[in-house]
Simulated scan of single mutants.
Amino acid sequence: MTFVKKSYEEIRDAILAQITKGIVNEGHIYDVDRTKYRLENAPVKSIVKVEGIMNGARHIFREGVDYKLTGDMLEWLPNGDKPDNKTLFYVNYIFGAPSGITDINPGSVTRTIVEAISREIEFLYEQLNRVYLAGFIDTASGSALDLVVSLLGISRKPPEHAAGKVTFGRSTDPPEIQVSREAHLYDGKTVYELNTLPIKSVNKVEGLSSGSLHVFQRGKDYAVVERGIEWLIEGRKPDYNTMFYVDYTAYERIKIPAGIKVSTYSPNPREAKVFVTTEER
């Protein structure tokens, strides 16, 4: 049976109802073909509360809208809410002559004692609710979750700080740097990395080829790659162990220092997460 936590108000009202000759949680099974249910104790003075399951969830029904008291019977009204078929609903009601204790107004001795007791019972319900929730993987936490997942042969990972990579962008290009005649020694490698990154464009590559000065053609002799140039297999190349020179345009490198705060976005500010960069990049 599912454990249902009760609130302080529910506990208080139930105790007060019993003190004043009331019945708490008298159970009846709802049948869609039946509208009237005779209560066990008569004469019934008034119905305090009717509670049951509607659409699979706990629901408190309204007097005069969902039901009414007819003699000593509870009668469900045609257009009101009703419990799910074949489920229990519970009725709290007052019957017979009033008991000797009639003053249950706020501030009375009876109510003050009942309210104090109800607070303690509410605390017990809270503890029982935590025990109940500790038995399910979706609601357990701490050591209780360790015990639940151990049944499946799973061990929890130790706690760690959230970490990840952040890419900073901008709506306009950064300032450009013009690099002229950056020298590289051709030693047979395919790819040569340029010194100033990131590269926007390569304007000119020249060097000695077959003993004479030659301007190499992009797409035929070389290709521009992410960090430099790559000599093509079928293209013309500088003479071995000679210098070739590259004119190119690069973007000014933007560095993000350590200690910069990066925040996620959320319509609810309390749900936004703030991270801090740990190194300069």
Rank of each mutant, 00 (worst) to 15 (best):
D33I: 13
K86D: 14
T20L: 11
Y251A: 09
Y248T: 06
V114M: 03
R58M: 13
Q178Y: 07
P269L: 10
T190C: 02
V4I: 13
D247K: 00
H59V: 11
K45W: 04
S108D: 02
W76R: 01
G56M: 06
K204M: 09
I137K: 08
T35L: 14
H214E: 07
Y67H: 02
V50S: 06
P159E: 04
A223C: 07
Y93H: 01
E271R: 13
L194E: 00
N25H: 13
G188H: 02
G71A: 11
T278Y: 04
Y248S: 12
V109A: 14
S118N: 03
S143D: 08
Q127A: 13
K36M: 12
N55T: 08
V24E: 01
P83L: 06
G219M: 04
T172N: 13
S155C: 05
G142L: 06
K165E: 10
V91P: 04
V131C: 14
A258E: 06
N85F: 05
K68Y: 05
S141M: 11
L69G: 11
V109F: 11
P78Q: 03
T102V: 14
D33C: 11
Y37S: 09
I19R: 01
T196N: 07
G207S: 06
E126M: 09
R281M: 15
V149R: 01
K157C: 10
Y8P: 05
V148C: 05
I177C: 03
G27V: 12
G235P: 00
I15C: 06
L197E: 04
I177W: 00
D84I: 07
N92R: 08
K255F: 15
S263F: 08
N55C: 09
V32N: 12
D146R: 04
N25T: 07
E206S: 11
G188C: 00
L232A: 08
E206N: 13
N92K: 08
T172V: 14
L232N: 02
V131R: 09
I94S: 08
S263N: 05
I11P: 04
K49S: 14
I104L: 10
L152M: 13
N41E: 10
I101V: 14
A116R: 09
H214P: 01
K49A: 12
F168H: 08
G169F: 06
N195E: 12
P83N: 03
A57G: 07
V148Y: 04
V149H: 05
Y245Q: 03
I233W: 03
L151V: 12
Y192D: 00
I154W: 03
S46Q: 07
E75P: 01
L124P: 03
L39G: 07
G164F: 03
V91K: 05
F244D: 03
D103E: 05
I101F: 10
T87D: 02
I11L: 11
T110Y: 02
K273V: 14
Y93N: 04
R58V: 11
I199W: 00
Y186P: 00
K5L: 15
F168A: 14
V262Y: 05
M243L: 15
T35S: 13
I254S: 11
G211S: 04
